[in-house]
């Protein structure tokens, strides 16, 4: 009983300390704020958005007005509502793809680093194989073959993002498994699985988390890029699809340039937020950087 509560207290303590370190970084705070904002927008989209994003609520290419702060697109749909709903797809794709990549990557990295030898060799060669595949062309080909759907895009992004995570985790595991506490655990008869789950995993998690943040950014940008090229699912409203239609319909030459500007700014905002957060995390996780800050 007591042990449990002590453990829990320690954990709480660590969270507080983490937050203390994190909140000292101004960029991290700004990034987190923007992220919270986007998350709220995604969750409460139906309540926040003024109109149904798929309904015809005005004329085509209406300039900004009180009814439509960002104007309307060629279908007479409200652009502000579309941008708000688009947050959902972007966040979903980014987070799920990064989670999937992190899961595959850390599994492969830990197994490879921990067991070493033949397993390591083979797994790392497979990882190398995926690492040398040129990302964008591969993604374009795969998404053409698999067809346009959000789930396929998530899968495809995860497939090309996991190798870097695996590399990172493997090198960390290599150093971890030589540490005393792991040795001690092994001597006391812990199984490999127990050691991986209870000792290696918690210790690589911070690194995985830090790299995940950047994966999320690239996943969001990739999703938008694929949709912009017309490889996304056109029936789902996302910023990429908006940009696609805006460009093909010549929105920049029309009365309503916000059709192309709004989703662009939304994308920049979310990308920037994740980059800020990842800077901050880097500082918190890497003590040397923290020292320098002071």
């Amino acid at each position: 009983m007591e042990a449990v509560s002590v453990k829990r207290y320690r954990r709480f303590e660590r969270v507080i300390e983490f937050w203390r370190a994190y909140s000292r970084t101004r960029l991290g705070l700004i990034g987190l704020g923007i992220l919270l904002f986007y998350t709220l927008m995604a969750i409460f989209a139906p309540w926040i958005a003024p109109y149904d994003p798929k309904a015809r609520v005005g004329g085509s290419f209406e300039p900004p007005s009180a009814e439509h702060p960002l104007g309307t697109d060629e279908m007479g749909r409200d652009i502000l509502s579309q941008v708000i709903y688009g947050t959902r797809v972007s966040l979903l794709v980014g987070v799920l793809a990064a989670l999937l990549a992190a899961a595959i990557g850390s599994a492969v990295g830990m197994v490879s680093g921990y067991f070493g030898g033949l397993v390591d060799d083979l797994l790392m060669r497979i990882t190398d194989l995926f690492l040398v595949i040129p990302g964008l062309p591969f993604i374009i080909v795969l998404s053409v073959v698999l067809g346009p759907s959000i789930w396929n895009i998530i899968l495809v992004i995860a497939i090309i993002s996991w190798p870097s995570v695996a590399r990172l985790v493997r090198s960390e595991t290599l150093s971890l498994k030589e540490r005393l506490f792991v040795q001690a655990s092994r001597v006391s008869g812990a199984t490999d699985l127990y050691i991986i789950v209870h000792h290696i995993l918690p210790n690589v998690l911070p690194i995985v988390a830090a790299s995940m943040v950047l994966t999320i950014t690239s996943a969001i940008i990739l999703e938008a890029g694929l949709s912009f090229l017309g490889l996304g699912d056109p029936t789902k409203i996302s910023w990429g699809t908006m940009l696609y239609f805006a460009d093909r319909q010549g929105a920049l030459l029309s009365d309503n340039p916000y059709y192309i500007i709004a989703p662009g700014i939304a994308l920049i905002g979310i990308g920037l937020a994740f980059v800020f957060v990842s800077y901050a995390l880097d500082e918190v996780v890497n003590p040397r950087l923290r020292e320098r800050e002071r």
């Binding site: 704020g33 926040i48 003024p50 015809r56 005005g58 004329g59 009180a66 009814e67 007479g76």
Partner: peptide, 30 residues
């Protein structure tokens, strides 16, 4: 040009109120 189908139910300034709501959210988060 296709006649713009005016939104029958949308109250004027619906978009503005959304913008206001967004501003409030930002301030609260900050």
């Amino acid at each position: 040009a296709p006649a713009p189908t005016s939104p029958a139910t949308a109250p004027a300034g619906k978009g503005l109120s959304t913008l206001a709501a967004i501003a409030v959210i930002i301030i609260v988060i900050a």
